[in-house]
Amino acid sequence: MNKVVANADEAVRDVSDGATIMVGGFGLCGIPENLIRALVRKGVKNLTTISNNAGVDGFGMGLLLSAGQIRRHIGTYVGENKLLEQMVLQGQIQLDLVPQGTFSERIRAGGAGIPAFFTPTGVGTVVAENKETREFDGRLYLMERALKADFALVKAWKGDKWGNLVYRKTARNFNPMMATAAKITIAEVEHLVDVGELQPDMVHTPSVFVSRVFQGELYEKRIEKRTVRRVASGQ
C-alpha cells in the first residue's frame, strides 16, 4: 500500500467546482500551504471551505478568497481578513460563524459517525436560532449537527507512506479531526518517512484516515504576531 503522491497538484487532481473542503490550521499555524497554492493554481470555483479562520490578505486561504474561488465559508473567527469582510457585505460570499468548540466537535462527530450531539454552548444566543433545545439534568443544551467534507487538506510535521501522521506543537489544532471527517483526506507533511520509522505510541492520526500523502516544500510558515520579550537589563 502506497498512498504517496508526487506533489500538491497531483494530490488535488480530482477536486472539482462546488466541492466542500476542510482546511487545517489555526490562524496561519498548521495550514497546508502547498495544497492551498495547488487549489489556486487549479482554479476550482464555488468552493465551500471549512476552516477555523480564513487566512490573511495575500496568504493562506486569503489567496483562495482573492481569486474568487470561495462561495461559502464556515469558520469561527475571520477578524483579520478585510477582503472577506468586503465580500460578505457585497453578498459575494456566504459566511457561517460557529463557536470554536462546537466547530471542533461537529468535525470530530462527522468523522466519528455521530450525526448530532448536544452542547451548552450558545444557549440563549443567536447561535441557538432554529435549533432544537433540550434539557438534561436541569440544564439547557442545543443540538448541533456533524460537519463533513468531500476533501480534507491537512498539514502534519511527519507522515509515513501509509499516512500515519504526527503533528508539531500548536500546528496540530484542527488537523486531526478534519483528517477523519472527509471522503478524501490529503496530508502534506514536512518530513515524509518510510513505514516503520514512526513510533507507534507517537502516532497522532492513524493511517486509516488518510488517502494521500506527500512531502510539502517551500514552507513560509508566516507568523501573524511576532511577540517577544526583552532580556532583563544587566544580562
Binding site: T76, L95, L97, P99, Q100, G101
Partner: peptide, 11 residues
Amino acid sequence: RTVKGMGGAMD
C-alpha cells in the same frame, strides 16, 4: 460593525 466571529468565547 463588522462581524469578526465569536471564536472560543461562548464555549
